[in-house]
Structure formats: structure tokens, C-alpha cells
Design a protein around this nucleic acid. Sequence first.
DNA 1: CAAGAATATGAAAGATTATTGCGTCGATGT
DNA 2: ACATCGACGCAATAATCTTTCATATTCTTG
Lengths: 166, 166
Amino acid sequence: MPAHRLDPIDRKILAELQADGRMTNVELARRVGISAPPCLRRVRTLEEQGFIKGYHAEVDSRELGFEVQVFASVGLQSQAEADLRAFEDRCRGWPLVRECHMLNGEVDFILKCVAPDLSTFQAFLTEQLLTAPNVASVKTSLVIRCAKDEPGVPFDVLEERLSRTA
Amino acid sequence: MPAHRLDPIDRKILAELQADGRMTNVELARRVGISAPPCLRRVRTLEEQGFIKGYHAEVDSRELGFEVQVFASVGLQSQAEADLRAFEDRCRGWPLVRECHMLNGEVDFILKCVAPDLSTFQAFLTEQLLTAPNVASVKTSLVIRCAKDEPGVPFDVLEERLSRTA
DNA sequence: CAAGAATATGAAAGATTATTGCGTCGATGT
DNA sequence: ACATCGACGCAATAATCTTTCATATTCTTG
């Protein structure tokens, strides 16, 4: 856990930029309590060291016509490393698959998929996913509604944890 | 699907900002082929109309010490709307739960959770989630590795779809 | 404990960018 | 054909970003 190379100011910077990635550097500097130049240097360092992997606009997919979200649990026939890699590569090539996580337990993978409508997803399911090599079973669950969607780090938990260690 | 109020330039703006949310407005304008002022006006409009819901830095949670990711499938005893809402509210209050989606099928909810280590998650599981009111069953799956994680809109699919309709 | 090295800071200046105001062009509809 | 409306681009101003540099702080080392 190499979060120890980060001081409280760095963590505050990460928390602020996670909440608002387009914040002005002067505003960011004001919030973390230092002046603008060192603040910008810290941000650049955090980017170079990989703590910040990028910046993204959060686009409303439903407004853009992607009204269907589906979680798909996938079981494979062979769990040999080469076969796992092959399936992961295939997922990376499917634009409707936005996330692909390998799991322990009976299910090998869970996929988060999006689609403009149900028929589009059904077509993808039957023509691509179900017919892909090595796929043994697929169980899909439609997302009825999303109650919480805040990817990222819970900085409040991190701070509380560090304060108890210190 | 009100994506029809968006012309190709707007969609290009959304795609570019989704890929790089801190892109300079002049660079963005150059890429979409218009000058800076109207480009900024379009971005502001997209923000006001809700197509852009925010900007976020992508922070590496593992580098910050959150090495455990878990998907939890939750079944409730009562699916009355009030009880569903109550569980969703509880999820919003748990910082370790980053996503909460209500599903169709046998599983009522799927949660994406993070934790610094397994014991922290186990404590959350046994003391918070399993003992929460109305929770009937919880099945957890540890994430072994993540092959793809690109939340957002597949703009290539959108463009191809629009070109076929036109 | 003191001296020096390494690192981080803040002020100032110059370069880049964001933002406003305004005149012009093209599309729409009467 | 003409007026209206909306969007564009140019120019100017305001704000921000980014570098430079001198100083202060911390950490190491003798």
C-alpha cells in the first residue's frame, strides 16, 4: 500500500479532482491550502506516478439513447490462462461491453453491458457472446434502476483509516 | 431518445471530453473543426442540458490501498417499493459500496464494493450488509482481475447507428 | 548539534487559455 | 423576396496556466 508516499495535501488534491476533474488549478490550490505553482507540480507528479490515470467527462448514456444496461455472468469451459486471456481480449473488442471483471467462485466473469435497446442487446447476446468460443453459460440481468454510481475511491474511509494508524 | 437535438459536432465534443475531460477548449475546438468561442458555448449548453453530468479524475484505487473489489448479489425479503428505497438509501450511506443497481430476476440488487483488505470487507459484510433489515441473502464474488473498465458511452456504436438511420 | 544537501514553497513574469461583445453569414418561414 | 433567428468567427479583455528564481524548510550526515 504505497499511499504512504502521499501527504495529506496530495490526498486532498486527489479527492478534489475526483469530485470535480475540471477544477481550476488556482481553485484547487485555494482548497488544499497552498499556492498555485506547487499545487500544479503536485498534480503533474500524481499524474506521472499513476495515481491519476486520466480525466473523463461523465456523459449521460441514457440521454444519448443507451437505455439498456445489463449485467452478464459468464462461465467458461476452460479456465486455462490462455483461454481466460482470449475471452478478455474478445470482451475488449466488444464496444457494448463496458466492463469485464474476472471473479472467483462459480461465475468466471461478470460483464457490464450497455445497448440502445433490448433487441440490440439480444442480438449481441445470441450472435456474439453466446457463440463465442469457450463460453459455457451466460446469465443476464437487466438493470431496473441505478441507486448509486460513484466509481472511485472513498477518501473519507482512507482518511479515517490513516488517522487511526498514525 | 433525445440525442436528435445533437448534431455531429456535439457528439464529437462529448466523445472527446469523455476520452479526455481536461482537454483545453482550444484543442477541443480544433479537433471538432470549429473555433473556440462557439465550441465553449456548445460545451456549456451540453452541461446545462445534462448531457455532461460532471468531470472526474480517474484515481487508481489500488495505488491508494484499496486492493479488494467485490461484487455482491443481494436478495431482499420484501420487494415493496418502500423497502427497496430503504435498502437503496442504506447503500448510499455505505462508503464501501460504490455502485448499487436494482436488477430483474432472482437477484434484487448487485453492489460493487471496494475495501482496503479482505478483513475490512468481511467486517462490513457481516456487521453491516448481512445484518441490514430486509436482507435475505448475499452472495459475494471477489474480483480477481479487471480486464476492461471503460464506463461511459460507446460513441462508435452511436455513430454507426445514426448513420444507418440517416 | 551543526552544516550542507535536497526538496518544497511562494512571488513575479510571460505565455496560453477562457470569455465576452459584435458583425456577418446561412437557414427558416412568411 | 424579405425579415427573423440562430450559429459562427474575429477581436479584445480577463483569467488562468506555467516557468523562473530566490527563499525557507526538512532531512541527512559528519
